[in-house]
């Protein structure tokens, strides 16, 4: 059998087809990687650029995550920074307000266990891991109102952890922001 010339030719043909397919497969994979890199270059969603830490035990005592500093702040460059804390079983602020068509940086962390932070119908989607600060850069094109659930199991009350976000007209937002340093849409 081993010396059957037909067998050897067959084996060679098979190997050739196989090599061709391997090359195609490698091509497909290379294309995928290039696409991922291209999207990265062109400012699609990118992972947060830095690792930062925060002590969940003392978030409420000092630092940028004390309750009076949570919410949306207008930066000198016109962008908006939103600070939020996730805890069993709510986000604070539980209603976030941001202007439309404005660069937004969300900075959030967890006060106890791992939570998820997701804004439906958007690409805002991250994990809040206690001990670390999550940052997300985003922008909402038009005014809208969306839900903001926790998407990671965080204990027996996880199913009740739904926040909301309101994207409002930029001019309205800036007018409101003029007399309040931190904005939320929490009903007081």
């Amino acid at each position: 059998m081993t010396y059957d010339p037909g067998h050897i030719t067959g084996a060679m043909v098979a190997a050739r087809i196989e090599r061709r397919w391997t090359a195609i497969s490698i091509g497909i994979i290379a294309l995928l990687i290039v696409m991922a890199a291209y999207a990265g270059i062109h400012q699609a969603v990118m992972p947060q650029p830095r690792v930062e830490t925060a002590d969940p035990r003392t978030l409420h005592i000092a630092g940028e995550f004390i309750e009076s500093n949570l919410g949306s702040a207008v930066e000198p460059d016109g962008s908006v920074t939103v600070r939020a804390v996730g805890q069993q079983y709510s986000f604070t602020p539980q209603c976030i307000v941001v202007p439309a068509d404005t660069p937004i940086t969300i900075r959030a962390t967890s006060a106890d266990v791992v939570h998820g932070f997701l804004i439906e119908h958007s690409n805002v989607n991250t994990m809040l891991v206690p001990g670390y600060i999550s940052t997300i850069a985003t922008r909402f094109a038009t005014p809208s109102e969306r839900v903001m659930p926790c998407h990671e199991f965080c204990g027996a009350g996880h199913e009740g952890m739904w926040g909301r976000i309101k994207v409002i007209d930029k001019a309205t937002f800036m007018k409101l922001a003029a007399d309040r340093r931190r904005m939320t849409c929490v009903a007081q």
Partner: peptide
């Protein structure tokens, strides 16, 4: 697996 697309469905 792709970095960017993942954000729209991550952990949903």
């Amino acid at each position: 697996m792709s970095y960017q697309l993942d954000a729209s469905i991550h952990n949903t």
